[in-house]
Structures are given as structure tokens and as C-alpha cells.
Design a binder for these strands. Structure first.
Lengths: 325, 325
DNA sequence: TTGTACGCGTTATCAA
DNA sequence: TTGATAACGCGTACAA
């Protein structure tokens, strides 16, 4: 592999002059500059990343840390982040699991975007204390160089439930949750309860799900044996809603006539179910854009709000329809 | 950030002794070693990645290059690769788009796994010529240090079609393709045609899809106006099959009675459609395991077969059922 | 068993 | 406008 030394030798100049030319520093004669650039091209010179990093302390890499690659949500956020980063000549490095630790601690990245509940607040704080900008998407945590850009689950669910309750179409309400340690599940339940409380509804049914289709299906199967039979059910995510709906349909319930169902995420399959599922959607690609842009501005030294959220939209579809005024 | 220098000073030894101790080189007195390790822990010492790389020429990073993060397939392959790599203390770096070029050329990775048709054979060949091991998952291309580990689309589709045709249940056959420049689409069509030819079937219907649900849906809508009305349709992937089935159902066709439908990928949603869709599935996580393992062995200097494939399985489900003998 | 000294490829400071 | 040289943090041959 050709180094800058080789380029300098071939162009008949010193190493430092070659470095100047290659980095577009304006104090080098056009003619010698051309010679150097030509030599570099002929030798197919590429600067050695690590050597440069050792000097400049800049990697041009942004780390995105997730807990696993599965699920429909990540791919879209990642795509959005990638697009914006690429426009700004930054690399995206996606990591998960243990690799994340070494990447972070060995400082192979200039900034970190975190969507991995396995990374503890302490760990994150520790990295941030070294000055690296960090954006968290999956928790409520703010600190000196830690910024939050997560879904406002609570407000979105509450808004939807307000409409639902105000329509007076339903007798009683149920909530199918996700894992108890999942930020999104907990917050969505908070919003649900808040709306009910506001309207003076004291009681509701609660089912413990796990964010999977199979989990939702199981709950749907047991539904008819429950003592309460809500005619409106909010599922904490779309996959739960799909499984739940499948099961209750098999038990003869008509959707939305017997039970209205709502999900969360606007997972694209919800449009292809029968009936199409009403859901709350985040534009994940746009979310990715926003997060990436924020990171770029942070690296450029701007001061930014500590806390922001991507906007969410309610997609009223067949599984739960409300006549809005 | 603490360097090895700080550790050495704190432990009261020279830099090299510290280095020996930290790298488990056995020529250092247990007592001094302990002192050094303690000092390292107190200072939270982490070796500087780039500095080390500059010396050792090893990054411990494996690059996975994909053309985008969307779609249900990638996430699973990535997960499989990640798991195996992690077991061997290697990092996975996923990249796509332009970033891939710089990562590859600046040698931030020890090996590359490629699933990105945008990276040309020339480009790959160029990298490989520098000795970096490369595994391609999305093309037929083999060379000195380039290995192929892609789905044997042709054989799998042919095997399924052989069973289908041998059952003599169907009058005529149709194929819904994906994009013409997609390796998987082309090869699957080859397998389809091969089976028909083998059984002396001269004619079939062909529909041009694009691997999306919407694409499949459009074709399904136009289906009834087609001059041929095959009662068996092979869709080049599951998303196409889902869209196609949805549309023909809306036009009153009964599945599988009027039309039998088969997809490819075993996308998990196929089990939750009505009827459940028959499909050919690759265990993507296992595929990831195999590919990662191959990469590790390559890096260890083993000689391996140039060409392998993950195994595929036919999942006979409701949308197309054959009584096998 | 431990320490000295050099080099990896690059950028940055200073002098010419 | 250019060139010599130090420095980044680490690993290692060689000497002690």
C-alpha cells in the first residue's frame, strides 16, 4: 500500500509538502501541487485511517449502537441516519452487543447514537464524561453531553385515547403491554392511563404481552375467557396487534364491530392485514435524519436543546374508526 | 484519556514492561504484572485502537457492506454474523452506501462480507488484490481471495417446482419476478424455467414485479385480465406473494383452490397471512453464522472451498399443498 | 526480568 | 513556497 512517503518521493518533494497538497492547504505552488496529486493518483494513494486518527483525533465515524438487528423499526431509522451522515461525508458504524463497548471505549467513533437498553446509564455517562456527544433514543436520560431524542410515547397515546374516549363508542377499554422493562411499553401505558383518568374512567383491563406477534396471539386466544371483555383494545405495538387480532378473529369476533383494535409503530404490514390496523406511526426515516443532523451540529459545537421528539401521526384505519369533528 | 505511559508511570515500571504485562506476554514477574494491571484498572486504561492498528496491522473489525438497511432479510443475516463474530472477539461494522468505499480502502477492516450490488466486481477485485479476504453473498464471482456464499436459488426453486409439476394438480404455471437486475430474481426464474423444461412444459405466464408488496398487488389486480390464467403462481419473494395474494383474493379468487401461490424467503409474516403462504426459506441467522465462521477461518489462514451455499427448506403451507409420496 | 530506542503513517510546528 | 523534525500511542528487537 502506497504511503504519503511514496507519493512525496515520486513527486520529488518533501513529505510535508505532499501532505499540504493532499489536504488542500493553500500555501503550495499550483505546479507542485499538480505533480503531487498526479503521483498520488498513479500510486492509488489512500491516507491510512489509523495513522491520521492518531494525529487528528477525528475518526469521521459515528457509532450507532443497537441491541440487535431484528425488527422492522431499526432498519428504517438506520437508513435515515445513514442518508444524512453520508451527505455530510461521515461514516456510520452500526454495532451491537459486546462490540459496542470496545468501539466506544477505544474511541473509534466521534459520537454515539444509542438505542440499546443493555448499555447502562452509568456506562453512557462514563463515555460522555470524556466529551463525546451522545444521543439516546431509548430512555429518559439527559446530562452534560448526553442528548435525548426519543418518541413522546405518552403524549401520542394520550392524544389518541382522548379522541377514542370522546367518541363515546366504547363500553370499556383494554391495554396489551410489551415487556415491563421496555421504555416504549411503559410510557405508552402511562399515556393510556392518563387519558382514562382524565375522563374519569376508573377501570380497564390489562394484558401482559411481549411485543411479538406470538405474544399477542396468545393473549387473543385467552381473551374470551377473561372476566372483562373490553370492546376497545390498545396494543403497545403493531406486532402485538397483529397477533391479537388474528386470534380473536379465529374465535369469531368481528373487528372492529365486536372489538376495536389499535397498534403502535405503523409497521408497514398493518396496511395489508384484514382489516387494516389503526396505528400511531413515527416516520422512522425522518427520525433518523433528525438524529443524524443533531449529531452533526453537536460535533460542530452548536448548543442544542437537550430534549426533542420525532413527530408522530395517527393513522385511522379499519380496525378502529372514529368520526372526528 | 489514560495511555500506557500513564500506566507505566503509576506502576513504577517502563513502558515496555507495561506493554508486556497488558498483552499477557509471559516474561514478566507476577508481582510487577499485578502492579501494572492494578494501575491500568485504576486509570481505566484502554489501548488506543488506531495506535495499535498502526503497529499490528490488525483491526479486529469485519466489515459487512449492504446496500440499505431495509427489508426483513438483512436484519437476520446481520444478527447471525454478529453472534459468531462476537464469540470470537471480533467486531462487526455494518456500512452501506458511499461509506463502504472509504472503510474498505482505508483498511479499517480485516475482512469484508459483501451484500451490495452497487459494489462492482472491479471494485471488489481491487480490494481483494491487496490480500483482504472477501465473501460475497449476492453474486456469482470468485477469485483469488474472493469467496462466494450465496443462496442456491436455482436448485431450490427447481426442486420445489419438480414436486409441484409431478403432483399433476395444476393446469398451467406463472412466475412473478423481481427486478431484472436482482441476482436472486434472475436465478429463481432460471430454476423455474429449468423444471418446466425438464417436464416438457413449453409455456408459462411471466409477470414483471419488483420484490415489493405493492408491486405484487398491482400484478394481482391485473391478473384477471390476463390472457393466460395459470392456477399456480410462483412469486420471486414473499413480499410479492403477499401483495399478489391480497389482490387476487379481493377479486374473488379462492386460494389455493383457484390459484396456488408460493413465495420465497420464509419472511415471518407469511405464517400470519390467510391462508398461510407456502415458501422456500433460508435460515438467515444460520447463514450469518456460517459466513462469519468462514471469515474467521479465512483470517486464520485456512484454505476453504470457494463456493458454498446455505441450506434451504420448503415450507409447505396452506397456499399450496402437495401430497408428497 | 526489565528498560532503551525505534518505527508504524500522518499532521503540525517551526525554520529556511 | 518548501523542508526538516517532533509528536500521536503502541509494540517489539535488542541490550542490559
Amino acid at each position: 500500500m502506497a504511503t504519503i512517503k511514496d507519493v512525496a518521493k515520486r513527486a520529488g518533494v518533501s513529505i510535508s509538502t505532499a501532505s499540504y497538497a493532499l489536504n488542500n492547504i493553500p500555501n503550495v505552488h499550483p505546479l507542485t501541487k499538480k505533480k503531487i496529486l498526479d503521483a498520488a493518483k498513479e500510486l492509488q494513494y489512500m491516507p491510512h485511517f489509523s495513522a491520521r486518527h492518531l494525529k487528528t483525533k477525528k475518526t469521521n465515524n459515528i457509532g450507532v449502537f443497537i441491541y440487535g438487528f431484528s425488527g422492522p423499526v431499526f432498519s428504517e431509522i438506520l437508513e435515515g441516519i445513514r442518508q444524512t451522515l453520508q451527505d455530510h461525508k461521515l461514516n456510520i458504524i452500526v454495532s451491537s452487543g459486546l462490540s459496542s463497548h470496545s468501539l466506544l471505549r477505544e474511541k473509534q467513533v466521534d459520537g454515539a447514537i444509542i438505542f440499546d437498553a443493555n448499555l447502562t446509564n452509568d456506562m453512557i455517562e462514563h463515555i460522555a464524561s470524556k466529551g463525546m456527544p451522545i444521543i439516546v433514543l431509548d430512555r429518559d436520560y439527559i446530562s452534560s453531553s448526553i442528548y435525548q431524542h426519543s418518541i413522546d410515547n405518552e403524549a401520542l397515546v394520550e392524544a389518541l385515547m382522548n379522541d377514542v374516549i370522546a367518541s363515546k363508542k366504547y363500553r370499556s377499554y383494554g391495554f396489551v403491554s410489551g415487556p415491563l422493562d421496555a421504555y416504549n411499553a411503559v410510557k405508552r401505558y402511562e399515556g393510556f392511563k392518563k387519558a382514562l383518568k382524565k375522563h374519569g374512567i376508573a377501570q380497564h383491563a390489562y394484558y401482559q404481552g411481549d411485543f411479538t406477534i406470538d405474544g399477542g396471539y396468545l393473549i387473543g386466544q385467552q381473551f374470551k375467557h377473561g372476566q372483562q371483555q373490553p370492546d376497545f383494545v390498545f396494543c403497545a405495538n403493531d406486532e402485538t396487534a397483529i397477533g391479537f387480532m388474528q386470534a380473536v378473529k379465529e374465535h369469531g369476533y368481528k373487528i372492529p364491530h365486536d372489538i376495536a383494535i389499535v397498534g403502535f409503530d405503523n409497521f408497514y404490514m398493518t396496511q395489508f392485514m384484514q382489516p387494516k390496523i389503526t396505528t400511531i406511526g413515527i416516520d422512522h426515516i425522518e427520525w433518523g435524519h433528525q438524529v443524524a443532523l443533531k449529531m452533526i451540529q453537536l460535533l460542530d459545537g452548536y448548543t442544542l436543546p437537550k430534549q426533542e421528539s420525532p413527530t408522530g401521526t395517527i393513522f385511522w384505519r379499519e380496525s378502529c374508526q372514529i368520526e372526528k369533528d
